[in-house]
Design a protein around this nucleic acid. Structure first.
Lengths: 152, 152
DNA sequence: TACGGATCATTGAAAAAGTCAACGATTGTT
DNA sequence: AACAATCGTTGACTTTTTCAATGATCCGTA
């Protein structure tokens, strides 16, 4: 991402038609968001990705790695290293799949849940910062639209 | 990105709280969108990035490379290679900055505009596909919210 | 029940993207 | 005139992404 961390003013180029291109808008908002999020998560030795995995491990949904890959739009091999990392740090465990012994279920440890709670609090501040220009209603609306676009 | 190209059903994991995490939603929608867009642009030898640069070069706004970097959230060195590529293919030209002789202004060639028009048509179909679950109103709304979040 | 094709996690290699520091040329400031 | 800052560029380096191959396991079907 660009070196600029605080970009307050409306860029001149936003006037172009491409300033309404959904792909670009998503890329840009995602880029600035990731920057903030990763900065906030660094205190806990996490990044956006590992935080997502940890969150789902803490969710009680007992996701398999394949599910994580699909849901997070990652290659299965990327999930392997994310889980490896979290496991080495004792935040997460691999358990054998229940119906399917090929699959590995990712579950959080107590320490994992502890870290996750702290990190989540930090992230909420981040998100608020990123969407500061939106009212509370718009914030909710944006979430709803993104969810609907993704899975109807 | 994940190997799944057509993901119709709501994933089980969307139930988790993280299913409402803005960062994740943006990442996911951006990921699936990029996949589609790059596939569509491949016919013209373009990718999302080079298409964006080409679009701005065609816009008449005469952007400098620094402006491109800022607007597209890229490192200046990345812009160099994007412009190099487009220039070698005769779609774009570097012109000397008007007030500032350090800066280079990126402008499209006739061929560049020709390719751009074709590519843009392909992308519009893409975008429609990606946001198929949204009504026309919601589509507009989403764009507006993203823009507001980015630059108020 | 046994075979065959598909799926899961994993590995490793290759390609692409991102990050960063340094440089010459130019600018604006003091 | 001197100085720091900015622009584009280069090159090195790290990280991320992508892809094919593998052993283990599952499932459908003969």
């Amino acid at each position: 991402m660009g070196p600029q961390s605080t970009e307050v003013e409306t860029p001149r180029l936003a006037a172009a038609k491409i300033g309404s291109d959904v792909g670009l808008l998503l890329a840009k908002l995602h880029a600035t968001g990731s920057l903030l999020n990763n900065k906030a998560l660094a205190d806990y030795g996490l990044r956006e990705r590992s935080f997502s995995v940890l969150t789902l491990a803490c969710s009680g949904l007992e996701p398999t790695q394949r599910e994580l890959a699909d849901f997070l739009s990652l290659d299965p091999s990327q999930v392997v290293s994310l889980v490896d990392d979290l496991e080495h740090r004792g935040l997460v465990k691999r358990a054998q799949g229940k119906q399917d012994r090929r699959a590995k279920i990712i579950v959080s440890t107590a320490e994992g849940r502890r870290i996750h709670n702290k990190a989540r609090a930090g992230l909420e501040v981040c998100e608020q910062t990123q969407l500061a220009a939106l009212t509370e209603d718009e914030n909710v609306q944006l979430r709803a639209l993104l969810k609907k676009a993704l899975w109807g």
